[in-house]
Design a protein around this nucleic acid. Structure first.
Lengths: 335, 335
DNA sequence: TATGTTTATGAAAATGTTTTCATAGTTGAA
DNA sequence: TTCAACTATGAAAACATTTTCATAAACATA
């Protein structure tokens, strides 16, 4: 049942060390022997025990995923689960396996870093975290290779949507169609992504020769439908409604839109709206929502590639940012 | 930096075996010594190397997740990712860690079972699989403990929503409000869940003294918005529309509803609709959708509990089914 | 052919635990 | 006090690999 390296060594009349070298493509075995060993091993479907190998080499094909527990954004959040899916698919194809990094192991509290060293995890993806979590900082500054999506930190490579350009795209779209007052509904300003989107919004307004009116910038405290609803009320308190609104997230945008509509405003005739993310549902929303599509596949794959390069020592650049373009998708809310 | 059992043994002037016993609450150490060791170990934050321990004991706190690659339902499917989230949270609290079981490791094709033995994974959750996948069967019949959600198989414990009762709830709701013709839009009939829902639908109609009209059962070939759309066309070809429709999934229901509306039918005035799942978005859909809520938390947690019991040898029952109740949520589509 | 050099192989050590077993120490009964 | 019966401790083996190093074999050079 359970096959060890001895089974193949004995069967072939060679030493286990020879088998090991042959299988790992290590030098020190003749080509003939290597072929012979590999052939036999695959015949009997021998796979080296990963645990033993990990113990000896300290190198593992294990990649960890860390979700900060502070923000309780988990797997059920579509944006992150799509990134994760893309990441997972890519690294698994490359022969890595992934597991979740946790801060409670065998019923003891444990640091992310401690978990990684204990488990011989040599690379992690930091998926949805606040950069100032001290446990994250500890991890980043350790010998464990890290990449992140959607947060910056010194000492860390990040891949992230090009939020500034995306926001600019939305503003330009509106301005070119004659709108002169464009509101921005921000998400929580702690989120870097929201700040970048705001920056892009402001800069593009100026580039287009318009003024930034601070009254037209409304913060929604959370990325949720309900908070979008609430933002809509503040929007409607403005003296006269702007005819165009750029919203920092689709969920907020949907709540915002629904509220406007139930107060008698027509979308897009009275107010045009562009969201951000392109979560699958916005196309079934009424009206279907124009939005800036984040390329979650590319986000996940880029993070995966970078992390593998780092782990393979194929690159020395431990820091930096890769921006992934976003794309404006036009739907009914801006028709 | 890296602390081993020797560090604590030497510091305390005892043998590593003593430390091991003390830390694992194994017999053969005095209470005094146990306290002393535990105190010191936690002071210097020593955590036993999981790899070494796993190698020796063969027992691991590792739980695997298997998604069949055939159905390419992955993490991005909200229903499964919510189950997984609940499962993950529970098992991690119990001190287990999870990783994904894959059929390609270190660039070699490998069976799910081979992966598990190689990695010392002693329990798996089978999340979204066809029961007749031979690799799954091999796994189920091995010594690896398995539980599944949403599929049956001999030799396997399954936790699953009470689809029959759920369907009956929907039918009864309609009949009690005077509807005499209730259509059923099924999902793909390969899915057991759909067949169970159909069964519940048929039985309840009969219990209510109504006839089952085969023309009112329409199959949507996939769990998608688009296929729901398509099912709506077939629905509209019926001589006269039933005034009530039970749909096997929210995604299908939304596609179905949108299509009906764009053909001039009013929901709920002309046709009332109940979906299945209660994915978060249906409340923002227009009209918001009545549906049968699947308790994904309970689904995940029940699977987790059962699996842990199996792994701890706390139970011998390897097979069986646990049904989780579903709940009818009324919204605008049936008002 | 003799000598030096490279190459292939295997024996043994090492990885960090847990477990078994022998031994020393302690306790309790006679 | 003596002997039996536990109990606490530690030494060593075991888990399945990889790696180092010594040695034997093959090869090349003079």
């Amino acid at each position: 049942m359970k096959k060890t390296i001895y089974d193949v060594a004995n069967a072939l009349g060679v030493a286990p060390s020879t088998v090991s070298k042959a299988l790992n493509n290590a030098p020190g075995v003749s080509a003939k022997m290597r072929r012979k060993v590999q052939k036999y091993a695959s015949e009997i479907r021998y796979f080296p025990n990963a645990t033993a190998s990990k113990l000896k080499t300290k190198k593992s094909y294990a990649i960890g995923i860390v979700f900060s527990e502070q923000l309780n954004i988990g797997l059920e959040h579509n944006f992150f689960s799509r990134i994760l899916q893309a990441f997972k698919t890519y690294v698994e194809k490359e022969g890595y396996e992934i597991s979740f990094v946790i801060s409670n192991y065998a019923k003891q509290d444990i640091t992310y870093l401690e978990f990684c060293v204990q488990k011989n995890i040599s690379g992690v993806l930091i998926l949805a975290c606040l950069p100032d979590d001290p446990h994250i900082t500890e991890l980043i500054n350790s010998s464990v290779h890290c990449v992140s999506t959607d947060t910056y930190s010194d000492n860390l490579f990040t891949v992230m949507s090009d939020n500034r350009t995306g926001a600019a795209l939305a503003v330009r779209f509106f301005v070119e169609r004659g709108h002169t007052r464009v509101a921005y509904i921000s998400g929580p300003k702690e989120a870097i992504a929201c700040r970048e989107r705001e920056e892009g919004y402001r800069n593009e307004l100026i580039s287009q020769g318009l003024q930034v009116d601070e009254n037209l910038i409304i913060e929604s405290k959370e990325f949720s439908f309900e908070h979008g609803h609430e933002a809509a009320y503040r929007f409607m308190e403005l003296d006269s409604y702007p005819s165009a609104v750029f919203v920092a997230s689709d969920e907020i945008a949907m709540g915002f839109t629904k509220c406007l509509r139930s107060n008698g405003l027509r979308i897009p005739q009275d107010v045009q709206i562009i969201g951000f993310d392109d979560i699958p549902f916005v196309q079934y929303f009424e009206p279907s929502l124009s939005t800036l599509r984040q390329n979650t596949t590319e986000l996940g794959v880029s993070a995966a590639k970078k992390l593998i390069d780092l782990m393979d020592a194929a690159t020395e650049e431990k820091t930096g940012v890769k921006y992934i373009p976003v794309e404006l998708i036009e739907r009914e809310s801006t028709k």
